[in-house]
Amino acid sequence: MISSAVYTVMFYGLSAAVILLAVLAVNLRQLLRAALALMGMLSLSAGLYVLLHAEFLAGVQVLVYIGGIVVLIVFAIMLTRSSELLEDHPRPLAQVLGALLSMFFLFVAALALRDTRFPVQVQTGPPVDDVRQIGLLLLDRGATGYLVPFELLSLLLLVAIIGGTVIARKVAPPKQPFTTGGDARGETITESARTQRDIVPGEGAP
């Protein structure tokens, strides 16, 4: 068991690093560096979960977010040519207003959270992190179970996969016209492939 002082120092250190990396992930101009900052931010939040005795959550965080999502982002960046973000310069007024609004929200949220006594840490100790218990809860059909959201999540992922393939598919599949023409012949695979090649990078909508 870590002593309370060390614990506090670790917590604030990790939190500061997470916030710093999150700001970097948003502000860095090089996409790859931003992705790396994101990766660092996610792994340090996994550290926060460990400090909070949620080891399972930390493991999932590393597996899914770092192992899956960030790696996917890095692949996407490396396989496309958009290594640098298209510069977007908001008007100074918009920047100032945005900053003020964010500061205001931060201030209000911090104030509200400071003045609230959450019952969690008062009544119970740290939660027991039991993978078996989590698994049982996810498939529990009773009043305390989470069967419905668990099953709905699978549908959500299915929709995301279908949507992703439809939107990201570069070339029409064989025999399926790119343009649905009913009985008429649509664009075939070669035609749309040629169109894709003809697109000059840097042109088109940002």
Partner: peptide
């Protein structure tokens, strides 16, 4: 629009099966 019965066809509206099924998934949600 999707079956191409429109007199002025809209380009790029394919994938009918996927279209209707995710429309129905949205209703389920």
């Amino acid at each position: 629009t999707l079956d191409g019965r429109a007199r002025v066809r809209v380009r790029g509206m394919g994938f009918r099966g996927e279209y209707y099924s995710i429309l129905l998934f949205s209703v389920v949600g």
